[in-house]
Structure formats: C-alpha cells, structure tokens
Write a protein that binds this DNA or RNA. Structure first.
Lengths: 379, 379
DNA sequence: TGGATTTCGCGGGAAAGCAGCGTTATCGCT
DNA sequence: AGCGATAACGCTGCTTTCCCGCGAAATCCA
C-alpha cells in the first residue's frame, strides 16, 4: 500500500518510452512518441536525454521525410545491443543457450548434449558453460550481460525453486536462480519450460493478441504453460499446468502409443512417431485409429481446460507442431463436438525455441523491473 | 501505453489513502497513514483536506492517547455511509438484494421468490424492485447509491453479458449491466455468482491472504469461482469455472444422488440431502457409501484443478458448508492420497451471502476506478 | 521565391510531493 | 505544581516533474 511520488512517475514514463521504442520497428520521432504515450514533447525530450547519456538510445541523422513537408524530425532508436540477456533450457537430453538483445533478436547460440541429467550441479555447470559459449558466439563482452533466465521441466515456484519433477527427486529444492547466479554473476530467474513457451509465443509467436493463453505439450511428455492476463500463472508451488504429475502413467495408456512420442526428447522415438503420422496421412487404418485415439486424449484435456481456465487461444507445441496438419483439424472438430467455448487452436510459431524465447522475455521483464522499479504501486 | 502525469499521482495517492482508511478498524492519525503509505505528512494533510470537503472523510474529536506522551493527534475516519453500493443475486428460485456501505457493512436487505426465472425482463424488474426495497430498509436516500452489481448463474463475459446458461437460452445475450442501469440509474456491473463468491470470501471471508483461490460449489448444481492474482478470472466468454457445462448430466451420475442436492436451491431437496448427511454422521452404511462416492467425485474435480489452476486455497460453498464436518476431512484425505500440491481446503465463512458480498466488492472496486481512474498505466 | 507545414528549442508556469523547523499539547516524574 | 520528554501540528520553502505555448528553423510544393 505504497503511495507514489514524482520520481516514480519518471520511472514509469522512462519505462513506457523504452517500451514504445522497443515495439516500433524503425527509428522514431519525438512527435510519434508523444502521440503514442500521451506525454508532452518536452517530457519526452528530457527523458530521451537521460536515455541517450545512459546509452539506451541513439540519435540518428536527420533525414527529410520524403513526401511530406515540414522540418525534418530528430530520429531516435533503441540501442538494442546495449544490454544482452541470456536464456538457457535444460531438458533430460540437452542443454541449449541463447543470448539475445533487448529487442529479442537472438545474437548468439550454443547447444550440446547434457552430461548427466539427474545431477543438478553438473547440469548447471554445463548450463553456465553454454551461456559463456553463446555469449562468445554473439561476440558480446560479458559485462553487457544484464540478466538471465532458465527454462526447465517440472514444477518451479515463484522464487525459481524446483518443487517437483517426474521420475527424480534429485532436483527438488534446488534454487535455480541462486545456483546460476553463483556461476554467472547477473540476476537470474527460472520458470517452467511450458510456461515460458506460452510467454514466448505471446511475445514473438502466434499468441500476440491473446491475454489468456495455454501452451500445450501433450503426449509422452505433458505439460501446460498458462498465461492469465498476459502473465505466467505458476500457481501453488508452480504446480499449475503440471498435469503429468496428476496421473501416474500406465504402460497401456494413450501416452505410451508411438504417436504420443511426438513430444519425446529422444530423436529415435520422435522418428517413430513421425512415421505413424505419415502413415495416417497416407490413410493407413491402424495409424488413423491411433491418431484418433490420441486426438480424443488431447481433446479431453483441452475440453476440461476450456471450462476451467477458458483460454482464448491454445497453442500446440513441444513436438506436436510437426503433425499440425493431422492434429489441428481433428482436435478442433472434437472441441466443437464437445460444445466448448470458441477457443482458437494454433500450432506453435517458435517450435523448439519457444521456451528459450520466453526465457529471454522473462529476463527482459525482470531487468526492466530492476532498473525502473515496479510500474504498479503494490496495494 | 499511456504515460503518467502529476494528476495521475494524486489520483493514485487519493485512492491509496482511502483504502488505508477503509482497512483500518478505528480512527486513524496522520502519522499512521504516513507510515503505512510512505507518503509525507504534508501530502496526506492536503489529500485529506479534499476528501473532507468531498465528504468521504470525517475528522473526529482529538482525544489524548492514553499511556503515551505527546500532543494528541488529529483523528480521521472514513465516512463509510457517504456512498452506498447495491448488490443483487438472481437464482432460479429467488432474488435477493443488499445495500452496503463502502466498508462492506450490509445496511439494508430485501428478499423474495422470483416470479418467473426463465423471463429475463420480469426477473430484472424484480431485481430492481428489490434494490429499492433494500435501499429503503437501509434508510438511505437513493442519491447516495453510487454503483451496483449483479450476481447471476451462467457464463457472463467481461462486459456483463450472459453468454451461456444451463437449461435455458432465454438469458443468452442479455446485457445485464445495461438492463439494470435502465431501471436504476447508476453504473452497474455483473458477474457469475461463484466468481463473486470467491471475491467475497477474499474480502470478508476465509480467503484473506490467498491470491489464487477457487470457490467451489459441487453437486447438483456446480460451478467454480476463480481468483488469479486476487482478481476474478472469467476466461473466454466467461466460461472459466462453468464446469457444469462441460458434461451433460446423466440421471445415474453422482450429481443426482440425494447427497448432491446439498447445492440445490430448492429447500425440499436440501432437506433430503441434509438427512443423508445426518445418516452418514450416525454411521449408516448406505449413507456413508453415498458420501464416499460424492467425496470421490469432488476430489476428482479438485485434483484436476490442483494441476491446472493450482490455487493455494479451495473454499467449499453453495450449500456444501452445511456438511463441512463430514466432507472436509474426507476430501482432504482424498487430495492427499492423490499427491496433489498442499492446497488448503476450507468451508465458506459467508455462506449464502458469499456472492452478494462479492458483488458489493465488485461494485466498490469499479466505483473506485470510476472516481480515481485506473491505478495502473495500461501498457 | 514564398506560403504551408512540421518540428525544434526553450522559457514560463503549474501541480505535486518532500524536508525541516519552530510550536503546541500531553504524559510522567519529581 | 513544575519541568523535561515526547509526539504531533502547521507552516514555509524547495525540488522534481510535467505541461503549455510561441517564435525559429527546416523542408516541401506550387
């Protein structure tokens, strides 16, 4: 229940202007910023001054605007490379890292198989190494790195602590941000990979206009990423969306049919699944039956979601996108038959990068908060 | 993406001070307000001045503070009766209205059976009449009424329009706020009764500290009210929580056993249900079996919720509270057996008034926004 | 070449909050 | 009853921040 003062106003307005610069494609003029932010020209002038000296913004040459009269406007541009963000994803098989600028453009990458998944410490060592490699790949000096975020499986709570993970207890209680900050000295954050998938999809993928989004990976592995009012919803102990924990998987269940291996991290299994999908495309009866069964399974889960979370968009990802042509129409039909609300169903636009893109966004948002304070007076 | 200016600061701070006055039990001093809001004494002085002249705040006599030295402080108090809020609830059987002050104290009531539920227009006429009666009961002049809110069953979207209602289509598309504003000329708002139950429970009930709450009515009638980050979550077309729409109810299903009539709006059926509960308390085998079956049904739904919405608290209401001693321990046990996250389970503290209390809170929040503007710059 | 258009650059002013200090009223102790 | 300690009052002056508006500057177009 904290009040506001003028410096809070300045912080908010600075952040607003930075965001306005970030969303605009090219250079921007004072007038355009003024219109979009409802702030006066003078105010923007002053704030841009401090952003210039801080290095966040560059002033470009003045160029006469072709085709319209008037004095040429000063043109400003976000120096996207002024700050770099790191994102790492750890799966059971691999660890991959990207380094991105504040616009979300990925400027460096690194990828390798994990030495030993069950062991948190060595995995986190690998993660840190990968971040350094990605930073080198980006050609960026380490001191430009401002923040990082980790995407991992399992239930991760609001503080980034692993609360639960299928098939192993060795990660439980690991404080991911703290562990990573020990290895690479910037603020770190962590979240579930499906949650970050949803976040990424809203930032740079297919979920742009939607405030309530579910990013769904359903199959052999299963998890939901949930955005409510545009923000990740973790729930108690990060359990929101961890449906794989809900039911112990039976060997005879749908999730163990080959087609459900679409979501598997193992290439061999994925290949088998894709063969089944191809067979279904070709009209082979047994493959079609298997797909139908799988679709029914997916539709059951999504129907439940439609009457509880009721997102306006569901994004299929985690491998399912490779069978989008087969799955999407069938699942849509099943949802319509179940008379659910008119939820939109799409395939991921980011593919395997979804969680990494979301992790970049997480790091970016948190960096913003650290620099400018919370935009909202916390009541 | 709107910037902030000083008048926005003043609006925010005025609202912050009003809220601080509202939550404090007795009269409050400048110093105490200053500490709680982190605003300077001077600022609070000035804002209280305008609130005094506007009638929102009263200054009380100075009384020496017993037991501690120092000049007696000026004491201010929220004039709770300065504004009145109306709340109406329409069920299939009844319509009831309350009038409350800004503290949420209910100062007037009215209640009567509904003439004809399927007919929206006559039902809304009844609702308007009841509000006038409740206002009379409160002894308040109509011009002190500032806003009103309606609680109704069914899927109600963000604009207050009924999108879906079991067993009838006659309410579909009815713009509840507009219809009520035609009859009683204040701003009106509408929401689902279970959503408002959750909101009420967080404001004046058992859910005070919890940000993610599910208010659950499960049985013959069924619906979930969902709070995420403290705010009502409606979802697409208001479908969030409308689980009764998910599955067509079968005559042989659990929801049609007598014990499930706990949630029925019909007194006769409720009486039958309570008899069954009493029999179970007495240890009668068939009643116990029925209760166990009902508990399993409830636990199934709540388990699903624990892995999707993952609230930190689930409140049982809508009639279930009358069997709390029987249901709560059994459902808790079932959830524990299912290894769900450690969600808390409680019985409603507001009982049948939950939705009405929540409606008062809804009207209050919206009135606040109308008076002081949104607290957050909308990005 | 000159009018129209658009932005620049800056001075003045208003709104809001903050810091600080002497004043005032009360308590508790002698 | 008197006196120091205490805590709030009431005010002046100051800082920060934003807004308004006007003359100047730079460009386009006829």
């Amino acid at each position: 229940m904290a009040g506001m003062n003028q410096s809070a106003v300045r912080r908010v307005n600075t952040s607003v202007i930075l965001r306005a610069l970030a969303v605009s494609a090219g250079p921007t003029t004072l007038t355009s910023l003024s219109e979009r932010t409802t702030l006066s020209r003078r105010t923007i002038e002053l704030i841009l001054d401090s952003l210039l000296t801080a290095g966040w913004v560059a002033e470009l040459d003045r160029v006469p605007a072709r085709g319209c009269a008037g004095r040429p406007a000063r043109r400003y541009e976000l120096r996207a490379e002024h700050a770099l963000l790191a994102a790492v994803q750890i799966t059971t098989e691999n660890v991959s890292a990207v380094v991105a600028d504040v616009r979300g453009r990925i400027v460096g990458r690194a990828h390798r198989p994990l030495r030993s998944y069950p062991d948190p410490q060595s995995s986190l060592d690998d993660a840190a190494t990968l971040v350094r490699e990605a930073l080198e790949d980006a050609g960026g000096s380490p001191e430009r790195l401002r923040a990082g975020a980790l995407a991992s499986g399992g239930a991760i709570d609001d503080d980034g602590v692993v609360r639960r993970l299928v098939h192993t207890t060795r990660w439980e209680g690991v404080d991911l941000p703290a562990e990573l900050a020990r290895r690479i000295r910037v603020p770190w954050f962590a979240d579930n990979d499906t949650n970050l998938g949803a976040l990424g999809e809203r930032w740079r993928g297919v979920a742009g206009d939607h405030d309530n989004v579910v990013w769904a990976m359903l199959g052999n592995r299963a998890g939901l990423g949930i955005l409510i009012r545009g923000a990740v919803h973790r729930g108690l102990d990060g359990a929101a969306g961890e449906i794989i924990e809900a039911v112990p998987m039976r060997t005879d269940s749908v999730e163990n049919r080959p087609v459900a291996w679409l979501t598997s991290p193992e290439p061999d299994r994925r290949a088998v699944a894709l063969e089944r999908v191809e067979a279904a495309r070709a009209g082979e009866a047994s493959a079609l039956a298997e797909v139908d069964e799988f679709v029914a399974h997916i539709a059951t889960i999504l129907t439940t979601l439609s009457w509880t979370v009721a997102p306006s968009l569901i994004v299929l990802g985690g491998g399912l996108e490779d069978a989008a042509d087969v799955l999407l129409p069938r699942v849509r039909e099943a949802l319509r038959a179940a008379r659910t609300p008119a939820v939109e169903l799409r395939s991921t636009a980011l593919g395997r990068d979804a969680a990494l893109v979301g992790a970049v966004k997480l790091a970016l948002d948190r960096m913003d908060t650290e620099l400018f304070g919370p935009l909202v007076p916390s009541l």
